[in-house]
């Protein structure tokens, strides 16, 4: 598959008053055309710096950013501005112009690329319709909810028909329901318009829901990269494990217990089915099954809460009864 962006040996060092801060070190990522690529990491890992290097809001100290075949670092200022027209960005804080209406905000990128006013307005209306905000075109940002603001920002980002959409913590300021709807919108944009999307987040559920591949950034380095499925089921780096399961207590505070007692009837392959379907590792602590296959099995749950959720969903689907218990060995 063709690569739309190639980040090669990227290094970014900040000159701080306290000395040099290495924010990114030897980052290599190839982003494929049409995919949704997630970049996840804990706070301060360097995610924002990385995404800002992709459109050169931050100039890399070393390395190359190849976008659509051209090395951005080697472009003249004019060429770089032109390249940015095909690479849009949305932000955690939305960053809409406060003195412009929703419609005028969407018109902004068209104005700066010299699209005639009436044409820009028409295009902006189309985009507001796409994000479901047609009736809010005259509202100022202060008259919109967070989710609506992000929709306007997305419409604005799409105005110049970009090839890539960069999202820096685009849902981090939103509640779960709104996050859900924005993620659905992004998926829809990816599928219908073929826009490559790069999602920066510190939330695994965002990655799990919309990304195809991901890279885990920890302390300025990429510590893990691959298909979301693979990384989720077989996390190798410590940072990935930590992101998958922020703290053990988080799992238990969900009302979850550490073990699951499953009642089986005659389903001989139940355990292997669970493992295969949910891509989780399980440990059988004890089993009490009679010759007909009836009985109970006590399983140690994996540490990853999303894996636990998958297991429970699988059991619920098949109407297999279970109860959560604490294991006192």
């Amino acid at each position: 598959m063709e690569n739309i962006i190639e980040i090669r040996q990227l290094n970014k060092t900040f000159d701080d008053s306290a000395g040099k801060v290495v924010a990114l070190d030897d980052i290599n990522i190839s982003i494929r055309k049409g995919e949704i690529f997630g970049i996840i990491g804990l706070s301060g890992a360097g995610k924002s710096t990385l995404v800002r290097c992709i459109n050169l809001l931050e100039r890399p100290t070393r390395g190359q950013i190849i976008f659509d075949g051209q090395d951005l670092c080697s472009l003249s200022k004019k060429q770089l501005l032109a390249a940015r027209h095909s690479m849009s960005m949305i932000f955690q804080s939305f960053n809409l112009l406060s003195q412009r209406t929703a419609l005028q905000n969407v018109c902004f990128p068209l104005e700066i690329t010299g699209v005639p006013h009436s044409q820009a307005k028409e295009k902006a209306r189309e985009l507001l319709k796409l994000v479901g905000l047609s009736e809010k075109e005259k509202n100022y940002p202060s008259q919109l909810s967070g989710g609506q603001k992000q929709r306007v920002a997305i419409a604005r980002a799409l105005a110049t028909q970009p090839k890539v959409l960069l999202c820096d913590e685009a849902t981090s300021a939103l509640d779960p329901t709104t996050t859900q709807s924005i993620l659905e919108l992004l998926t829809q944009i990816n599928q219908k318009m073929g826009v490559t999307i790069i999602v920066i987040t510190h939330e695994m559920k965002v990655i799990e829901q919309i990304c195809h591949r991901l890279a885990v950034v920890d302390q300025s380095h990429i510590v893990e990269m691959g298909q979301v499925q693979d990384v989720f089921t077989r996390p190798r780096a410590a940072a990935t494990k930590q992101l998958l399961c922020p703290t053990d207590s988080a799992l238990f505070s969900e009302g979850g217990k550490e073990c699951l007692e499953i009642q089986t009837n005659d389903n001989e392959t139940l355990i292997s089915d669970i493992v295969l379907e949910t891509h989780s590792r399980l440990r059988i602590l004890s089993a009490d099954i009679d010759s007909s296959g009836k009985g109970s099995i006590l399983l140690r749950l994996p540490a990853d809460p999303t894996a636990v959720r998958r297991i429970k969903a699988y059991l619920d689907d098949r109407q297999i009864s279970y109860k959560e218990v604490n294991y006192n060995a």
């Binding site: 501005l81 804080s93 960053n95 902004f108 920002a153």
Partner: peptide, 11 residues
């Protein structure tokens, strides 16, 4: 942030 958004759009 607003200035940065404008820069990201190639202003």
């Amino acid at each position: 942030g607003v200035i940065e958004a404008a820069q990201s759009m190639g202003s």
